[in-house]
Write a protein that binds this DNA or RNA. Structure first.
Lengths: 195, 195
DNA sequence: AATTGAACAAATAATTCAATAGTTCATTTT
DNA sequence: AAAATGAACTATTGAATTATTTGTTCAATT
């Protein structure tokens, strides 16, 4: 078993424990025990507790985004891409309780303020998905010629707002209906009417 | 000077101090001194510190909404109403630093979760503005026949999101451009294309 | 009815100390 | 040499205590 494999084991163990007990209540020794090693040995793989946590969460967020990327790449039509991005993203979280639990316990992961975004690069990646869809839609003449960067930021903010409403505050039923209404509204707002 | 007048004086003094020092750092004695009375006399007008604060903020929020209501009432066209609602609301806050400061110091005033909304009735009032515009737009056949309640909640959430981004997290420049993009996007998304 | 000062109660801040948890490292095992 | 360990060290946390400030009440006064 290579070092990278072991690190993945550690991430998995850490995710499980952090999801259940939160950052504070989870001890380094708990994580070490879960992977079956002593805590001092854990320090051979990670530099400190905080970094272990951020890496664990980051890793999990990246898998989430990759799942969306892969779903989008199966579509050509730009409107379908947008719809799939929205639905896949929602669906993935529904199926990953541990990640959900982390998001609930640590609301700071999703902030409306880039400046205090601990996962800035990862979220930038997510914004790129939106941006590329906007670019394609405009190039193909199907979307209005909006200001791409501002519209990207706007759509991302609305997306984050939904995540907060749906998962962090838990108003599941109403928020998921809102989500559908939102996707429809936005697609109508993006698509040119003269087609 | 009537009792109600004096209460208004107290609200003004309290707003000034709360805006500057926040709830915790402002003492009841500070407020009393600002109006020129002893703190024991202040208790002749208010029941306790927390209520004084909530009344002060509520009072301020109501004035804000009234200013928007009065601006809307000058328009007949539903699209103009929507646009004026958005711009007037934005403009009012720009011109009222104390209220802005309160919102920044107490982020809980604007929450994405109705359940923990301390100013629920006031915000319901704001949602009514949106709702009535939606109803008019749909009745006149200018808007798509959306689900009114969910769309109202969605638009209100987007609005709150903007407030958070613009004032609570302070990214003034970018957020105000986003605001314009957002109003355009939403109006396009609401308005029927077959007209 | 409005205002006050004095008294009381509640909340907050500062300090201490013991226990826990995070981190490092010299040494051992593989 | 890489991986793992236990023991030692340091930093954090939580509980308990006390001191201080602030919120609130109320009988007496204007």
């Amino acid at each position: 078993m290579t070092k990278t494999d072991k690190q993945q084991d550690i991430f998995n163990a850490a995710l499980k424990l952090f999801a259940r007990y939160g950052f504070k209540k989870t001890t380094v020794e708990d994580v070490a025990a879960e992977v079956g090693m002593t805590k001092s040995n854990l320090y051979f793989y990670v530099t400190n507790k905080r970094e272990l946590y951020e890496h664990t969460v980051g890793n999990s967020l990246r898998q989430w985004r990759n799942s969306v990327v892969s779903a989008i790449s199966k579509k050509d039509d730009v409107v379908e891409k947008f719809a799939v991005m929205a639905s896949k993203s929602f669906e993935y979280l529904s199926n990953h309780e541990e990640l959900r639990s982390i998001l609930i316990m640590d609301p700071g992961i999703f902030t409306l303020s880039p400046a205090e975004d601990r996962f800035y690069e990862i979220n930038q990646g997510a914004m790129m998905l939106i941006k590329n869809i906007l670019i394609q839609g405009i190039e193909e003449g199907r979307f209005y010629e909006v200001d791409i960067d501002h519209m990207t930021e706007l759509l991302f903010s609305i997306y984050i707002m939904f995540l907060i409403k749906t998962y962090i505050k838990s108003e599941g039923s109403s928020a998921s209906r809102m989500y559908e209404e939102g996707v429809t509204l936005i697609l109508r707002g993006l698509c040119r009417k003269d087609l």
